[in-house]
């Protein structure tokens, strides 16, 4: 054997080029989900609830059963699906426009009910698929196609911090904000996913992982600058960390 394989994708990842832009973090997030599902032996028991946004095509990349939810409704669809199949692993994968704007009621109440589902929340501070409009997570001063002079706090309000909200709800078992801007943070993100998924497997409760992610195209940046923006602009406003972990008594 002249070549030694040192890096391979898990079988759950369908071997095809993604439609994502160069530097987009959806590919990384998909892969982390795929790796954790594989390592936890969940692939054939997983039901994926897709959402509306760039990641609507997640079903093209992960080899698991999937259903497509209307915009923002993935937590409600996942609630119905999990109630129908309590022994299966159900997760949603949602962007920030989907989850934090149109789907705010659904995510808050699914978490508050303590639905035994897991939510992967990709926050890139912008509506990606529709062309870079202002999202509820767009930072003050950040330019978008619907706030070309930059988000103005007086007029548009400030960026909504979802992990802080979800972490404060009674039904949430695990809630962490991670970032995909560095290798170290990506490793941490994988651990967070595993932790959140375990909460479902053990029947503990609702698991939520927010991933700060880059959208170089709509940010009008090259991929390296986009990563730097996460580090320098997003993380200071969206602090990383665990916002709730019911398995750690006395800690928040």
């Amino acid at each position: 054997m002249s070549e030694k394989l040192v890096f391979d994708a898990p079988e759950i990842m369908i071997d095809r080029p993604t439609h994502y832009c160069p530097g987009c973090h959806h590919g990384v997030a998909h892969r982390l989900v795929g790796e954790v599902l594989t390592e936890m032996g969940l692939v054939d028991d997983t039901l994926c609830v897709g959402s509306i946004g760039c990641s609507v095509f997640i079903y093209n990349y992960l080899d698991v059963d999937a259903v497509e939810a209307p915009h923002g409704r993935a937590p409600a669809v996942a609630t119905g699906l999990k109630r129908a199949h309590k022994d299966k692993f159900v997760f949603t994968y949602q962007g920030d426009g989907d989850l934090a704007s149109i789907g705010l009621a659904e995510i808050v109440h699914a978490a508050n009910r303590g639905e035994k589902i897991s939510v992967v929340f990709v926050n890139n501070t912008v509506y990606g698929m529709t062309g870079g409009q202002m999202a509820p997570t767009t930072l003050v001063g950040q330019k978008s196609t619907t706030c070309p002079d930059g988000r103005c706090a007086d007029e548009h309000g400030q960026a909504i911090r979802m992990s802080e909200i979800i972490g404060g709800l009674g039904g949430t078992a695990y809630c962490e904000r991670v970032s995909l801007d560095s290798v170290k943070n990506i490793r941490r993100a994988k651990k967070a996913l595993r932790k959140a998924f375990e909460m479902q497997i053990n029947g503990t409760g609702f698991g939520f992982v927010e991933m700060l992610s880059a959208c170089p195209t709509n940010w009008k940046m090259d991929p390296v600058s986009a990563n730097t923006r996460i580090t320098e602009e997003m993380i200071p406003y969206f602090p990383l960390g665990v916002f709730k972990d019911v398995t750690k008594d006395g800690e928040e």
């Binding site: 409704r73 009621a105 109440h109």
Partner: peptide, 24 residues
């Protein structure tokens, strides 16, 4: 069976969609 009082009719109908996808 399962009974869920949803947060809205929007959510209730989407829960129906989810359970229906599960074939029940």
């Amino acid at each position: 069976g399962e009974f869920v009082q949803a947060e809205s009719e929007v959510a209730a109908a989407n829960m129906l969609l989810g359970a229906a996808a599960g074939g029940v």
